[in-house]
Simulated scan of single mutants.
Amino acid sequence: MVEVQKSEFKARRERLLAQMDKNSVAIIPAASEVTRSRDTEYAFRQDSDFFYLTGFNEPDAVLVLCNNSDAPSTLFCLDKDKLAEIWHGRRVGFDKAKSDYLFDEAYPLSELNDKLLDILNEKDAIYFAQGAYTSFDTKVFTLLGTLRSGARKGLKA
């Protein structure tokens, strides 16, 4: 990816962060692959909002923007997996995604629930496109439920 493009995606994330309310988080999921029949998927097309902010063109990733953090932009993506890459093509991986796409932090998708719970704790507002991806809605509402019921653990929704 050309340096100018990398910095443009980072600038777009920074503009969005500047427009968000104080102490808030934006969660933008990537598109998922859609199965056509049994073992065949439709051609993958990334979610437009996600791609506009990241330039990252892999399925199932999640961008988290937090405007009161040392790491305002965090990407969660599929990890490198040699066997999966044989069937689904090469993956960037979270280490290379951080440097190549100028994210402040990047983690494997398997750490999303734990890290996102920490990120959402004590935030005043959460921005996400409710209804765009129903499986992701369930994940966010489950995390919010955990925050609401975790007052004894120091959690606050």
Rank of each mutant, 00 (worst) to 15 (best):
Q46E: 15
N23E: 13
S73I: 10
E41M: 04
D49M: 09
D70F: 11
L147G: 01
P72L: 01
K82Y: 03
T138L: 13
L155Y: 03
E8A: 14
M20S: 04
I86Q: 08
L63C: 04
A157I: 05
T74Y: 00
A31V: 10
L16I: 12
F136G: 02
D81H: 11
Y52D: 14
L120R: 02
K22V: 06
N113V: 02
E8N: 07
L120T: 03
D39V: 02
T74C: 08
Y52K: 13
D100H: 07
R38H: 10
T54G: 07
Q130P: 00
F128W: 14
D118C: 08
V34M: 07
Y42T: 07
S110G: 07
N57H: 07
A84K: 12
F44L: 05
D124A: 14
T40N: 07
R36N: 13
Y127K: 06
K153R: 13
E3T: 12
A43Y: 08
D95Q: 08
N121I: 06
L63I: 04
T74H: 05
V4H: 09
S149A: 12
C77K: 10
G131N: 13
L65V: 11
L144V: 08
L109E: 12
V25K: 04
P108I: 04
S110I: 09
I119A: 10
A18V: 01
G93E: 05
A132H: 13
V62Y: 11
L147F: 00
S7W: 03
T35V: 12
V25A: 02
K98Y: 08
L16D: 02
N57M: 09
D104W: 08
Y127Q: 05
T138H: 12
T74S: 05
G93W: 13
A26D: 03
Y127S: 04
A84N: 11
G131C: 07
S135F: 13
A61K: 08
R38Y: 05
F51A: 09
R13K: 13
Q19Y: 01
S135D: 06
N113Q: 14
D104Y: 04
D95G: 07
R148A: 06
K82G: 02
R12H: 15
R91H: 02
L65N: 09
D81P: 02
E33L: 10
N57K: 14
G131M: 06
K22Y: 11
F128N: 15
T54Y: 06
L17K: 14
L147Y: 04
Q19L: 13
C66D: 15
N23Q: 10
N67W: 05
L120M: 15
T138Q: 13
L16P: 00
A71T: 11
K156N: 10
V4I: 11
S32K: 15
D137Q: 08
G154L: 00
D79K: 05
N23M: 09
E105P: 00
K123H: 01
G150V: 10
D81T: 04
F56Q: 07
D124C: 10
L144A: 02
A30S: 15
A132V: 10
S24T: 05
A18D: 09
F94L: 09
T40V: 13
